[in-house]
Design a protein around this nucleic acid. Structure first.
Lengths: 247, 247
DNA sequence: CGTCGTATTGAATGGGTTCAAGTAGCGTGG
DNA sequence: CCACGCTACTTGAACCCATTCAATACGACG
């Protein structure tokens, strides 16, 4: 656990400005938030179902994810999170966690106390609004995943999640030129999209064979954005980005 | 379009108090919100994808639902809404709709202008908090549906949605004694849970045969709450009800 | 260089879909 | 008041997308 420097909060500010407008004052106030920084290894629970946290977790580097466990070892991944995200922001207005939050890769995490966030919201209603919006974009992504799992083919779902993550990463400056890091395993993709890892594997080979993407090691390359987004019926509206990401 | 009486706002107040505590002042201020009441027939779009509404819609009677349309006539229903719900509350902090809102049955709807809601939030931060919470419970329900569609069997999904709607209706005083109105068709259930109407039909017959439920006409009776909730792996935590609904 | 987790491949299985036909319920109009 | 027509519900049978099981290959890391 190390102390925070104000530069650490840059990903959060960048994220908030991708979905809302902040005044200089508000931006600076966000930058002055007290934050405790901690590094966690991969696949480590950060907050658990039923807990009542008194702080929120900001992803500084690496990917995190939220998930639910069901009977017989089944798992549903609810979301992937990248630097700038506050995956458990909902614990500020709500009391109890109804799912788990974990690191997918090794992560640097910043912890912001509910107390300091509440005070910030009180002093700067525009920040409160930006945070509310952030949780609403989160919800919009859930709706989109639900739609995919319920009504899209495996090909469409996987194409869609690639487009989505590319856009999310692009919005915080971590993607460009049709390339981005891809840090999740095929097993994780399956648990996120309601598919088996075996089928994910076959679909990925198919997408590669069709020349739509490359996915090897930790790099995703989208060779044919237009075809991929058509296949996934991807439309950025639901991400509610103020400044549109160029593909 | 008729003018509003303050008693009309009772379902909203009841709903907000099921997930948050309001002071007398705040409660009265909510009751003074100007509202335009309108009646719409069944299966009628209220707000459409890509629109930028300047008001929110409060369900006073009947059921509403949100949905997305996909290629080849596929439809995903994202949520069902009952009296007291504001299904498009997100249009207050966010600008653009990323899905549609429609009446499922004939409905009485109250329309609240963004302007008056914003002023209410400004004067009573506790109301703003309650509304934020409301959108977060909404999101929690999306996660739960996503989990069901992704990782539960058809039986589990259907059992789950019955438990969920019973609890939602109970929280606003529209269910009790293991009975509630059930206003959606089997087709709608299928589009909500990622199933075909044919399969929904078969599963329903199965649940009836097992003595778990009755579903005829517009009435759902849950004969065996304990078995049904076990089948759907239903746990009310995600509804974040302050006062627990008795089954 | 061995080990563990991920990726890959093949074959059998199955939950749920699709297609198709028939039934029941209900509002409407002649 | 009943025929009509619409919609939802029901049933059967064939089919298929994706799962499951099982075995093998790869690759990173100590």
């Amino acid at each position: 656990m190390t102390s925070a420097s104000s530069a650490e909060l840059a990903p959060l500010i960048r994220k908030l400005e991708s979905i809302a407008c902040l005044s200089d004052e508000a931006r600076q106030a966000v930058g002055r938030l007290p934050m405790a920084v901690r590094v966690v290894e991969a696949q480590h629970d950060i907050v658990r179902d039923k807990e009542r946290p008194s702080q929120c977790c900001l992803v500084l580097s690496g990917w995190a994810f939220r998930y639910k466990l069901l009977s017989e070892g089944k798992r549903q991944i609810l979301s992937f999170h990248v630097p700038g995200d506050i995956p458990d922001l909902q614990s500020l207005p709500l009391h109890v966690m109804d799912h788990n939050l974990a690191s997918l890769t090794p992560c640097r995490l910043g912890f912001l106390s509910h107390e300091s966030l509440r005070e910030l919201c009180f002093r700067y209603p525009e920040v409160a609004l930006a945070l509310w919006r952030d949780t609403l974009v989160d919800a919009a992504i859930f709706r989109e995943w639900m739609t995919g799992i319920g009504r899209r083919t495996a090909h469409g779902r996987i194409a869609h999640v690639f487009c989505e993550m590319y856009c999310k990463l692009h919005a915080v400056g971590l993607a460009g030129n049709n390339r981005c890091e891809w840090l999740s395993t095929q097993i994780d993709i399956g648990d996120a999209l309601g598919l088996s890892n075996v089928h994910v594997n076959r679909v990925l080979q198919d997408l590669r064979a069709q020349g739509l993407i490359s996915l090897q090691g930790r790099e995703l390359i989208i060779h044919d954005w237009s075809s991929l987004s058509r296949l996934g019926e991807f439309d950025t509206t639901y991400l509610h980005l103020e400044r549109e990401a160029a593909a």
